[in-house]
């Protein structure tokens, strides 16, 4: 199957006072349709630049990006690319514009001149998909952060997108809000086959993905299934990242219990491994 997002040797630098600062360099990766991919890396590692390159918010200075098979450097395709590759940003207060939840979700498809009946259907369906249908008439400023982010996700879904990119969309939420957003995203991925690229600082969230990409200094340092990536403890240290908390505990315990395996992802697995060590 053709990838839905493909980076071919992509480089991008930002102009600064003293010349140019490289943000991503020779980046190559692909995301398959229906995949749930997490991207991790410390601040300044190039994650957000990569996200903005996915749907033509930034255009590669070298190499190329194909989104749903379309070259993002082709200006004529940008409209279609952005419809199909939607983005949700970090700050829940910066991306809602309408006076009610349903008007906000309708904003995108309205701009595409979707007919009234179809519009209603799409708004309702999108709000149901993120569990916000009951609050469709609510005023956005009265919602919690997690609810606002789910409305933002519904706004993308209403465009009938194929890919959703979440650029640290859970960073400003409290634990409950984060759980709500992650549950919605996982359900959309599993039940509707929506492709997800999740950029996050929370290793516990990355652990829920099919595949994890580790960014470091503008390059891809490692990638693979969460279990394999989080087993590469030295690589993660190089990238300035932590382990998911259960894996972090296992690493510390390994001094006394060398038999504890690497790549532990959950509390349950960690407890089971410790119990095994005492048998």
């Amino acid at each position: 199957m053709n990838p839905i997002i493909e980076f071919q040797n992509v480089s991008y630098s930002y102009a600064t006072e003293d010349g140019a600062e490289s943000a991503v360099q020779g980046l190559c990766f692909a995301v398959s349709p229906g995949e749930f991919v997490a991207m991790v890396g410390r601040n300044g590692s190039g994650k957000s630049t990569a996200a903005k390159l996915c749907n033509g918010l930034l255009i590669p200075q070298e190499g190329r990006v194909l989104a749903a098979g379309m070259d993002t450097a082709n200006e004529n395709l940008l409209f279609e690319i952005r419809r199909r590759v939607g983005m949700v940003f970090q700050n829940p207060d910066n991306q809602i514009i309408a006076a009610t939840v349903e008007d906000d979700v309708a904003f995108g498809p309205e701009n595409l001149c979707v007919p009234q009946e179809e519009l209603r259907r799409r708004v309702d369906e999108s709000l149901r998909a993120v569990g916000m249908y009951e609050l469709r008439e609510a005023e956005p400023h009265k919602l919690s952060g997690g609810q606002k982010q789910r409305v933002a996700i519904a706004g993308v879904l209403a465009l009938h997108n194929d890919v959703i990119i979440l650029d640290e969309s859970t960073a400003m939420l409290d634990p409950r809000g984060r759980t709500e957003v992650m549950q919605s995203v996982r359900a959309l991925n599993r039940e509707r086959g929506l492709t997800v690229l999740l950029i996050t600082h929370f290793m516990e969230e990355a652990a829920q993905a099919d595949r994890v990409l580790v960014m470091h200094e503008g390059r891809l340092l490692a990638q693979g299934a969460p279990r394999d990536v989080f087993a590469q403890e030295e690589t993660l240290r190089t990238a300035g990242l932590s382990l998911p908390a259960p894996a972090g505990l296992a690493r510390l315990l390994r001094e006394d219990f060398p038999q504890l395996p690497r790549g532990i992802l959950t509390e349950e697995e960690c407890a089971a491994a410790i119990l095994e060590a005492f048998r």
């Binding site: 970090q90 290793m203 300035g240 990242l241």
Partner: peptide
């Protein structure tokens, strides 16, 4: 520490 990467939090 909200919104910072793991190294920033630390």
């Amino acid at each position: 520490t909200a919104g910072l990467d793991p190294a920033g939090k630390e």
